[in-house]
């Protein structure tokens, strides 16, 4: 998109964002994900008819940051709540914003069935390989060998099992219209993530079924890393285990041009 910039403006804080500073730790890419969603909703002109569903986890306060209506779900139940909202107001835009503990552990039942039903909702799924809010415990997405406060010697797959690749798993469901994994570790990938978020919301608006964007994200504080090093960890350790890509691109979603 090319436009002339009045007043020399190239980029400013999106209107989809409220004035409230986020509670996220410095350098946490939750903020980037939030910003991209706010930008997309603003650019699509749908802030007025959007209802967000916040999870339990670090994003529990997500409702403070978007210029849309918001509700706050019990842990893991955001897809069910979003289903209730969307079914009675199908013309509204409904999205959940969930972390990996919320979505891939306690809420696995809700997310799988929302996808299987082809609910016309959009899910923003933050994969940062640990439970951030409670202080860095092992999550379903914690990498093998990765140290957390509840796997202090590193995740031992013999006793603690293997990470779950959510996008791959959900992509097998016929109800899923658009399921992709992106990363937030550098400007190029952030751009790709934004494009994916846009397509996901377009998928919903066109009634093409369930859409989910998994975003590999950092947790500098619980990973004991500087924010910049955390980005490197995502690139070097997480991307190989959670490959980026389009896992489900239905014929309808493939038609979406933005």
């Amino acid at each position: 998109m090319v436009t002339t910039a009045p007043n020399n403006l190239v980029y400013e804080r999106p209107e989809g964002f409220t004035d409230t500073p986020t509670h996220y730790c410095p350098g946490c890419t939750h903020g980037v994900a939030h910003r991209l969603v706010a930008e997309v909703l603003e650019e699509m002109g749908v802030l007025d008819k959007t209802i967000g569903v916040a999870p339990v986890g670090c994003a529990v306060f997500a409702y403070n940051y978007f210029e849309t209506d918001f509700v706050e779900a019990p842990h893991g139940r955001a897809p069910a709540m979003a289903t209730g909202i969307k079914r009675v107001m199908p013309e509204r835009v409904v999205f959940t914003y969930q972390g990996d503990g919320d979505l891939a552990s306690i809420g696995m039942g809700e997310i799988v069935h929302a996808a299987a039903r082809g609910e016309n909702i959009t899910v923003i799924f933050i994969n940062n390989a640990n439970y951030g809010m409670t202080g860095g415990q092992m999550a379903p997405t914690t990498l093998p060998g990765m140290k957390t406060t509840s796997s202090p010697n590193g995740r031992d797959v013999e006793t603690q099992g293997y990470p779950i690749r959510v996008s791959e798993m959900l992509s097998t469901l016929d109800g899923a219209g658009y399921v992709v994994r992106r990363s937030l570790h550098d400007p190029k990938n952030i751009r790709l993530a934004k494009k994916a978020i846009r397509i996901a919301f377009e998928t919903q608006i066109r009634g093409l079924g369930f859409s989910l964007v998994e975003l590999l994200s950092t947790c500098p504080v619980n990973w004991n890393m500087k924010p910049v090093d955390a980005l490197k960890f995502v690139e070097e350790k997480m991307v190989p285990y959670f490959p980026l890509g389009d896992y489900k691109l239905s014929a309808g979603a493939a038609q979406i041009k933005i």
């Binding site: 998109m1 910039a5 190239v10 980029y11 996220y24 903020g31 980037v32």
Partner: peptide
């Protein structure tokens, strides 16, 4: 890359410019 949408960016206008992603 800013997680907090803290940065506003300007550029001297000489011609049409691409906007941020």
């Amino acid at each position: 890359v800013c997680p907090d949408a803290a940065i506003t960016v300007y550029r001297e206008v000489t011609k049409a410019v691409p906007t941020a992603a």
